[in-house]
Computed example of a mutant assay.
Amino acid sequence: MTKQITNFIKKHQIIGAIALASFFCFNNSKAQVVSNFENLTLATDTFWDGSDLSGGFASGDAFLKNNYNTSWFSWDGFAYSNKKDSITAGYGNQYAAFAGSGYNGNGNYAVAYCAPNSILKLTGNSTGSVLSGFYLTNNTYAGISMRDGDAFSKKFGGASGDDPDWFKLKIENYHLGVIVDSINVYLADYQFSDNSLDYIIKDWTWVDLTSLGASDSLSFSLSSSDNGMFGMNTPAYFCLDNFSTNFGTGISTIVENEIKVYPNPVSDIIHVDLSKFAGEKIKLSIHDIIGKQLFISELLDENEFILDMNSYENGVYFINIESKKVNLHQKFVKQ
């Protein structure tokens, strides 16, 4: 059974979800592309580790990079697998998902070994789009290592169960070569005062990426509370499936200036006239110049919206209003 993990995601900036498709029109319909890796051919109970030196693999609008070392016959970045062994401990089971299969019982899924990071690049129409999210679970090798301990890694929680251990995935979003935002997801968390709440993720679990804004690529890295003289002791693996992107497929015919915003430019308090939405439920959001959402609110039958802009930096912003009928947006300047 899948679980939403909103409570386990710690954002570095304010929660947001949607990027602007352009600065003069707004996309009012979206297409979703899902990378489920079923396009990749594998024999039953096998894996691909990059030994063909192809440098990675593609599914949907995602390219997952792989680095293969011919001297050591080792790899890092991403591999893919259909192995179903969720009970065998040790490095020999590094290609298996702790969930026992791909998402929803499917065959193939991606395996990440972060040494130090794993890179996913967007391709096709999804390049520069807003991401939807993906499903993740622990790798069997890492999951059992945390649950039971082994020769290199401690048992999470320790003998008493009270040790505040954790295993964390950091996802950094790049757009136009710059880190735009990041989120943290705990693959295991034993930091609760109530030990019954401690967990190691085993089921496929949804990770929402909409807050990251427009994206060209993602960097995945892992950290742990269990470290030694040579670095992290916890095996640096996780598994990924059904990576989903959104991109616009239609342009609204309603253009800029359809929303009355005043004063514009604004220095402190901005007013938005909502009289044309009388009796309607709307979603109002504010985005910066690169499309990252900074504010969002749902409103019902309001005539006016007022927002204090004193905490916002000087620059160009956009107000977007979404109802059942239309998507409208308006540019304004804070100075």
Score class of each variant (00 low, 15 high):
D85V: 05
Y199H: 06
K3M: 09
N7W: 12
S244Q: 13
L274P: 09
V326W: 07
D52P: 09
N233G: 14
I171S: 13
T245K: 13
T234V: 12
E298L: 15
I286N: 05
L120G: 03
F318A: 03
S81I: 06
T6W: 02
V261K: 08
G158N: 10
N195E: 15
E313R: 10
L218M: 09
F23Q: 15
N36F: 04
N233M: 09
S22I: 08
S59L: 01
G291A: 10
G177P: 03
S244I: 12
M1H: 04
D241W: 04
G228F: 11
A188L: 00
Q293L: 01
K155T: 03
I201G: 07
G16W: 09
F134Y: 10
G60K: 02
I15W: 02
F73A: 15
I251M: 07
G105K: 09
M229V: 12
S217P: 03
D85K: 08
D148W: 02
L328T: 01
A115F: 14
F24T: 00
I259G: 03
K168E: 04
S267H: 11
C25Q: 14
N310E: 06
K170S: 10
F63N: 02
N246K: 12
S215D: 04
S217C: 06
N246V: 13
S211Q: 14
S267K: 08
K276A: 00
D163T: 13
